[in-house]
């Protein structure tokens, strides 16, 4: 009798395609410095490479959880989704693209809106998601942003928008284009009501999104090294047939050219936005008590 025998004959050989050590979801390679990063470290540093500071692109829901106090927010207008008004077909029918996008991105539209608190201030925020048809803005995105503005107006709250977009959604034609005008008009009302709008530009922000709400913030800040522009670099290169300089249309280029108020590291954004909201949302000082306090300072100081 053999010393060893197979107890069961059911054991099968592992197929070759599965014969790998599973490191997926354990290590991530940084796109910039190529360092191998432990995924948990990366999560802790808000998807910013702890070695070189490279900001990984992140999804809309992740973005909103990072923004709001305690990561808590109420999602709004999730029922607003895109339809195919032009029955548009490029390499694929638009309807099919939409279905795929919803499935693969895990978000219902290229923007997720939410209501919550930031540094205890009431804030309505929207974050765009590049994984949904390149973060493009169609009628649904335009409607969601506009509703968000209207809510901020109604509830006397601040508006924060994180843009990440390839631009207007071509598959909806001029309807997409008109979202730019629609949102800008709503922002004009917000401005009239003296309510704050902080625009945060993330990698990449281009096209019709840059040329509408992204650049209309009372304060416009950008994440480090984000690509920000109107015409994308590929379009410019093809048009003028010249190679573009390396830092062209990056956040730092925009700061030098006076287009953004500051470049703010993702890890410092909450704190930074908190300070700005303190400036913008605290009640106006007309109160006598504060002035008496100042006056007494003035007398004691002299």
């Amino acid at each position: 009798m053999p010393w060893f025998s197979k107890k069961s004959k059911q054991i099968e050989a592992v197929p070759p395609e599965e014969r790998v050590v599973k490191t997926e979801n354990v290590f991530v390679k940084c796109d910039e410095c190529e360092a191998h990063l432990y995924k948990r470290d990366l999560d802790e540093s808000l998807q910013v490479c702890p070695k070189c500071g490279h900001h990984f692109r992140i999804g809309a829901r992740e973005r909103l959880s990072m923004l709001f106090d305690g990561g808590v927010y109420e999602e709004l207008d999730a029922e607003v989704i895109s339809i195919d008004p032009l029955e548009f077909v490029d390499t694929k029918p638009y309807k099919q693209r939409l279905k795929q996008a919803i499935k693969s991105s895990g978000v219902p539209e290229a923007i997720v809106s939410g209501r919550g608190k930031v540094a205890d201030h009431p804030v309505f925020a929207g974050a765009m998601d590049m994984s949904f048809i390149g973060g493009s803005m169609g009628s649904a995105v335009g409607e969601k942003v506009t509703r968000l503005i209207e809510r901020a107006l109604k509830e006397h709250a601040a508006l924060v928008l994180f843009s990440a977009s390839g631009g207007a959604r071509m598959q909806e034609g001029a309807l997409s284009l008109m979202q730019m005008a629609k949102i800008a008009a709503a922002l004009a009302a917000l401005d009239e009501a003296q309510l704050p709008f902080i625009s945060v530009l993330t990698d990449p922000t281009t096209g019709g999104v840059t040329a509408s709400f992204a650049m209309l913030g009372d304060i416009v800040i950008a994440e480090p090294k984000a690509l920000i522009g109107f015409a994308g670099p590929r379009v410019i290169e093809q048009t003028i047939r010249q190679k573009l300089p390396k830092d062209f249309q990056r956040s730092e280029f925009l700061l030098d050219h006076g287009m953004v108020d500051a470049i703010v590291d993702r890890r410092e954004q909450r704190d930074y936005l908190g300070k700005l909201l303190n400036f913008m949302l605290n009640p106006e000082i007309t109160g006598a008590s504060e002035m008496d306090r100042l006056r007494s300072r003035a007398i004691s100081g002299d």
Partner: peptide
């Protein structure tokens, strides 16, 4: 806060928000 949103940021002038004895 930086930049004129037109051409450049000028480091010869500093601007920003702050609190003065608690007042924004």
């Amino acid at each position: 806060l930086h930049g004129d949103r037109r051409f450049a940021d000028d480091p010869a002038i500093i601007c920003g928000s702050a609190r003065f004895h608690g007042l924004p």
